[in-house]
């Protein structure tokens, strides 16, 4: 393998970068001059959702399709990564991988376990408050995943069992999202168009499932990376 650091390639890349930069700059300037933005529309429509955090309303109601498809993307990433990182019986963190994990030693292990409870508490709070204040399913899921990563580093063998048993969590968000979309369509006639009287409850159900799926998939992806790296030792 020769190094690919040719100067022509570098210049072309620089040119492409600058071109993209110029185009986006022109677009941004034009947008700032022309468009009033969507914030007024969102604020006006917020009452229909009975949710106070506009970002949550956009994620789970106004642009529910985005989040629905995001769950599909995450599911695909997890499926691909876990297929690639080995057959299922050795897919998860093996003791050999654990011994050389970046966090090791009894102090770090203790720290990882100590962190678990406060992190889960923070995640629960974020999930609970997410409908009315900054926070929500994705943040809570990410925090739980971070806690799970710390835990995996602290105790590889047990966590591998947990990661393996929880596989059904991965498609949970997609499933709940689709079910909610269909159920809501029975009432309103449109897929994912939440009716006002149930919007908040529907969104909370979707949020819980989304947080669980995001947490599981991100934690499992970490296990995949650890395992793919530890393979063949």
């Amino acid at each position: 393998m020769k190094r690919r650091h040719h100067s022509l390639e570098g210049w072309l890349a620089l040119l492409a970068g600058l071109l993209a930069l110029g185009l986006v700059a022109a677009g941004v300037l034009a947008y700032q001059a022309d468009s009033p933005g969507l914030q007024d529309l969102v604020v006006r429509s917020l009452a229909q959702t009975r949710v106070d955090n506009p970002v949550t309303a956009v994620l789970l109601d106004f642009r529910g399709y985005d989040t629905l498809l995001e769950m599909g993307v995450l599911l695909l990433a997890w499926l691909t990564a876990s297929t690639l990182s080995g057959p299922s019986h050795e897919r998860l963190v093996r003791p050999s991988a654990r011994l050389e994990s970046p966090v090791d030693g009894s102090v770090d292990r203790m720290l990882a376990r100590l962190l678990l409870a406060p992190l889960l508490l923070v995640a629960a709070y974020l999930l609970w408050r997410g409908t009315d204040a900054p926070g929500g399913a994705l943040q809570a899921g990410a925090v739980v995943a971070a806690a799970a990563v710390a835990w995996q580093l602290g105790s590889g063998a047990e966590s591998s069992v947990t990661v393996r048993r929880g596989y059904w969590l991965a498609p949970a968000a997609l499933g709940v999202f689709l079910l909610a979309g269909v159920a809501v369509a029975v009432v309103t006639g449109t897929f994912l168009n939440h009716p006002q009287f149930a919007a908040r409850e529907v969104m909370m159900a979707i949020e819980v499932a989304t947080a669980a799926s995001v947490a599981y998939i991100l934690a499992a992806l970490f296990a995949c990376v650890l395992n793919a790296g530890g393979n063949g030792k």
């Binding site: 985005d66 989040t67 990564a81 991100l218």
Partner: peptide, 27 residues
């Protein structure tokens, strides 16, 4: 404007999962 915020939030999560997938592929 909360709409770009929601888009970026979605993007962040997709970006980290894509990174993880890329790392697995690399390894």
């Amino acid at each position: 404007d909360p709409v770009p915020h929601a888009l970026v939030l979605t993007g962040l999560v997709v970006a980290v999962s894509a990174t993880a997938l890329g790392l697995v592929l690399m390894l």
